[in-house]
Design a binder for these strands. Sequence first.
RNA 1: GGGAGCAUAGCUCAGUUGGUUUAGAGCAUCUGCCUUACAAGCAGAGGGUCCGCGGUUCGAGCCCGUGUGCUCCCA
Length: 870
Amino acid sequence: MELSKNFEPQGIEQKWYQHWLKQGYFNSKPDQRTPYTIVMPPPNVTGVLHMGHCLNNTIQDILIRRARMMGYNACWVPGTDHASIATEAKVVGMLRERGITKSSLSRDEFLSYAWEWKEKYGGIILQQLKKLGCSLDWDRTTFTMDKDYYDSVINVFVSLHKKGLIYRGKRMINWDVKALTALSDEEVIRKETKQKLYFLKYAIEGSNEPIVIATVRPETIMGDTAICVNPADERYKHLHGKFAFVPLINRRIPIITDEYVTMDFGTGALKVTPAHDTNDYALGQKHQLEVIDVFNDNGTISEAAGIYVGQDRFEVRKKIAVELEEKGFLLKTEEYTSEVGYSERTDVVVEPRLSLQWWLSMEKIATPALKAVMEDEIQFYPPKFRNVYRHWMENIKDWCISRQLWWGHRIPAWYNEDGKFVVAANESEAINLFEKEHGISNAKLKQDEDCLDTWFSSWLWPFEVFKGFSNPGNADVKYYYPTNTLVTAPEIIFFWVARMIMAGMEYMEEIPFKEVYFTGIVRDKQGRKMSKSLGNSPDLLGLIDQYGADAARFGIMIASPAGNDILFDEAALEQGRNFNNKMWNALKLIKMWEQRVIDTNDNDSSFAVEWFSNRLKEASGEVNNMMQQFRLSEALKSIYSLIWDDFCSWYLEWVKPGFEQPISKTTYLKTIEFFSSLMQLLHPFMPFVTEEIYHQLAERNDDICIKSFGTDFSTSTDALQNGDLLKQAISGIRDVRNKQQIKPKETIKLFIQTQNNAVYQQLQVLFAKQINADSIQFTQENISDSFTVVIGKDTFYIATEKPVDKTGQKESLEKELAYFQGFLTSVEKKLGNERFIQNAKPDVIALEQKKKADAEAKIKIITESIQALS
RNA sequence: GGGAGCAUAGCUCAGUUGGUUUAGAGCAUCUGCCUUACAAGCAGAGGGUCCGCGGUUCGAGCCCGUGUGCUCCCA
């Protein structure tokens, strides 16, 4: 069959992915082999594939494919997350488009819409991962709201409650006034925001002199229950114990003192609003202040405020400022920039709010999880994230786990009409428990309306995908848990990574994974985060169509060291596509030889075969080391250069027969073997093109996808050194040809002056071909009227028909001479330093002496060449 | 305000207990080639005050201090 001009990925990708699935290569069952397990960070069920997923999943696929080829029982588990807030928001939006409001629906009606939506759009992302070539065990696909998984989440809640770690409490939480739910601290994004600082005058009881406070939130003054100053502040000492009046509503509030107040911020006097600020709340508790909540759920002003009731908080901020000014309470305003919290999901300003929520006490379960990372039971790559992790774990706060949503795991708390409650997995258990705990039989109970935080289900992921909680001790969880490597973004180190470690230690009594590889964030060429609003996220599936999945994988991997952000540039995909073509063309070249193989000895190529065989083993060993250290990007670069430079540019050119000339069987078979090994080495990174070439190279009964790697990395130093020498000599002579503008077709005569005849003799034919020499001779003399080039300790004289341009020759040799003289000086300076001789290690001194000898020899040779020229 | 990290070629990055050269790679640039696998290619070349200053050391891109600029996390 005629091969196409360039590699055409589309049909080929489809073909091989189907073949791999059909062969069941990605399916894993426990057996006698060692397992290598990765659980995929479950994307949002309604998500679509973006660059972050592409990076993340390409890395996982590389690791899992490589493990599979190293003889492990590789298992990569896919799945999706129900993503309560994000999905509920999408469903609410979809309903709104159809003219239905959430509030007009019952819980069950809403949930049936949500499930309908999930069935229709859920899991699109998993189909997209197939395009990328991900070798996932699809039979194990899990959803965080599958029946067993759902029950496990509920049972974990019940169990933690029994252990006394889950409690209900009124606390300051982050309130999302749009989604109408509490948020955990991690779901709040802080952004620098330009605001105004308002200086307000509060009248003081029995005085004409007002006290001035500074605030960015004048709309909360109706909730003020004190003014606080620093006890050491001389300006306010006369006011201690006095009272002030809140402007507009004229409420009488005490002036208290606390060291918490910073004297040099604003006026040094702080209005205290316990209902609407976390720090004020703490201050209020300490000084037993009244708490007046002046906001409704949706961010409008409540009855308790007395004025502006029902109007939006930001509208009121503008209006009240005007009113305050008109009535003489506003002294001045200043520009002020500070960080304001926004909801991760709805992007509205988060309102600190006092609310009755469910909490998980973290301190006890965090301790073993911290230890596991600090004692390197779990390794982080790159290790800098250990510090981040430790800092968070040592200052951990209780986790607010309830969300005012319907889509998710419903909190298994049951209340009677008096507000008494029990926590139980289902209603009948709850009724029994109610009798036991509250002495009320056959109680009429109502279940809590709220759901659990999404992360309260995904923290069970590494074991519950193997049903480690719902079916404890089953064969799968015993075999696959703990998993090996978690690949994820540093952004969710607290949300997810830390909590999985806690859940693993608590319920499996074992770490959930041995290593965590943190990827970077994919940014655009200018370093900006990819976002919908900037419109700078490329269409990944479009790119795959255009360049092929292998090229996309190459492009995203070639410049992405662990933990560093990657700047995405489409040019990298072009490079990947070009690489495909390069390999494809090498294949075409070799296929051309197929009809010309003859059974003879070919001494001319044996040098090349020997060299490349060693080079391949050397590079495989290097790649092996880099992979062990998760240096994936560097490993890919090494393989790229091994294939493009060493194999294509050097090896193939060395063994390539002349036009329509035959090739020896040994060389031909060796070349196929080398190419196959290269494809194998590259396969985890670029699975499709490598499988295709592997099968094009020869009739096969196997697939590269599951072919075991060789483990022999031993090399012959001589073969490698001779290869390098030859490469340098060829490059050096080509350089002279280039500079002297000797036409490619023009032949030269080469004279070699060397102590090392034997090496050059064995590769004479090959050498001559590479530099287009019609003769190679050995000499002990200078050859006049020739161009000279010095490689190592050998001198090459290049004779042509052309007159020799001695000045250019001389100049370049003198430049080289100057370099080595400078170098020699620096080495001699070092060796002449007594303290160096005294202090340096003997092998360092020996090395310096060798450098000196080498430089001197080189200088001698170059000097002779220069003399020969004049 | 507290903490972590980064600064090396035009760009993106390597540089592994301080000594393997007067610092490397890919991309980009420049020069010459339509050479019988590949012009999406081949053969070459140029390009750096390793952010500034100070220190430790026989020796610093690497260690310490300090300044500048940037990024991230937490309050």
